[in-house]
Design a protein around this nucleic acid. Sequence first.
DNA 1: ACCCCGGGTGGGAGCGCTCTCAGGCAGCTG
DNA 2: CAGCTGCCTGAGAGCGCTCCCACCCGGGGT
Lengths: 341, 341
Amino acid sequence: MPEQITGPRPTLEAVAARAGVSRATASRVVNGGAGVRAPLVDKVRRAVEELGYVPNHAARSLVTRRNGAVAVIIAEPEFRVFSDPFFEQQVRGISRELTAHDAQLVLLWVEGPGDHDRIARYLGGGHVDGALAFSLHDDDRLPALIGRTRVPAVFGGRPAAGSGQGVPFVDADNRGGAREAVRHLVSLGCGTIAHIAGPRDQTSALDRLHGYRDVLAGADPALLCQGDFTEESGARAMAELLERRPDVDGVFVANDVMASGALRTLRERGVAVPGDVAVVGFDDMASVAPRTDPALTTVRQDIEGMGRLMVRLLMRLLDGTGGEPPASVVTPVTLVRRASA
Amino acid sequence: MPEQITGPRPTLEAVAARAGVSRATASRVVNGGAGVRAPLVDKVRRAVEELGYVPNHAARSLVTRRNGAVAVIIAEPEFRVFSDPFFEQQVRGISRELTAHDAQLVLLWVEGPGDHDRIARYLGGGHVDGALAFSLHDDDRLPALIGRTRVPAVFGGRPAAGSGQGVPFVDADNRGGAREAVRHLVSLGCGTIAHIAGPRDQTSALDRLHGYRDVLAGADPALLCQGDFTEESGARAMAELLERRPDVDGVFVANDVMASGALRTLRERGVAVPGDVAVVGFDDMASVAPRTDPALTTVRQDIEGMGRLMVRLLMRLLDGTGGEPPASVVTPVTLVRRASA
DNA sequence: ACCCCGGGTGGGAGCGCTCTCAGGCAGCTG
DNA sequence: CAGCTGCCTGAGAGCGCTCCCACCCGGGGT
């Protein structure tokens, strides 16, 4: 029980006095107690307890030049980003890992391109030890901006070629997952496999398309349909596909939400899934994939794990004595078999 | 253009030297320049510009005992809280207002009750000037916890009676909105108005129930049905209601999501809305209310505005010379008329 | 002409901490 | 038993800033 609830907060000086040691020794104990003899450690610990001592963060970071805080930069180019369950999971992973590293999460919400200056100033001001950002679109100037500030940073998602040089990223193995999905359709006996692709300006969507092509190099271009990751676009694309190639018997859809739309179209037209057409999605979004009719076979990525990994990479960057160059990480994905394929 | 990109960051001392003034004067200019003659102000400003000087936050807050950061505490008792669009909007409002006040947002994600200690320690550690928290459930121990830390705080949503004493809150006028909704149904000629209520342990749900009762004091208890804010529960409650009182001609539902479920039940049974039964929801959730069939008449609350208001209240608390006691704010709501009532 | 007043400026202390460095006290070797 | 090594401990500087206070200087009153 802390003794004094009110009054000025006790300083290290006070702790030292109470424990009968010097400020230096008290400091050593507070910071782990390495190289201090046990009886003294005990005395200091007790004094800390009794006084309810909490280190003054400002004083500490003034001298250590570290402030134990990491910025999480969230750009909001679209209508809703934050309420995306994907983000929720990633931010949760980040938060948990940050807590494990005793670091704080400072949320930087970018309000459009005009706000970039503010972000740059903040990062440049050294208020945080590092930054975590999400790379969403090709035209996103955030990666470049962060690269320029020279603040240690890690991206979530692979930035478009050339925009985030030197900044490591954590990305799911979109291409490999896509290959696995398509191979699964092949193994099921599908001979005419289509792909409903995501937006051209997102590396994840592009990678999934590339994975499809890796397996089905010579596929008819008519089997490729463009979507924009919305349910509606998935439904439309499926309809178009059915028209162009009525013989289609397998579809790899670039995300679960579009797959849900495609499934709807299929259902409406009385096409049996997976009997007539097998469908595989991507993301294994908890609110979608297990609930579609039939339940969606899809590719799962460990989103929270990716968030945690981002933090671990950043911490390595920060601790790094400058030796090793920080390597980006591509996390494995797994095919989750349900009913649709 | 900052002159030196690399090397140690310039200090105020360097700025002062370059401008040919004392550190004190340089400090005054950096902090607004009050009481410094124009030519000197200019000189210092130029030096700041040329050196790319950015104040050291740690040093500043060491002496001012302010750190320009506010904690936003998010408890997660349920499955998903963060991805709730309600939260998104509120946090966005908070973020914007905080930015306007030049303060940072430190996100504290509470991982269950066991995590309370950590939060308390953090808040008690004086790392932030104040805290913003959301009061969700009656049994939430967060309000009490925050009250004990003595950190200036503001709640979003009214805490349960007795749990967050002395801590001001910002809440929507749930009761008044409910009254308005019910009165609207009355004005439409509805004579048998039911209520589908939200969870008993949330003040917002309770207040809406009270609003209903304010207008319909002697209503048949059979007209009251319990839901839990999910779509499914709304659908079920509506079915029950239809069974208990087939003559029901108006329903006030405690939130839009449940109203959407109720609408579904009504549609499935061929009950005309608003012809046979008029329906009013609550929240005016953008992703729900305008998209239901028929579009939902509901009560709108300015969620982002509430977030901003929370920050403004907190800032007043912080600036407060201790004079006025901080008053909670109940923000007005408006009835949005669409097709369902 | 002298003094006083007040706005502007600079000197310097000190916020609470970490970290280097010198000193002290064992314990061990020669 | 002297000398040396090595481990602990304490003294003190200093991180970059704000703010108090003393000082300076010009203008107005006596």
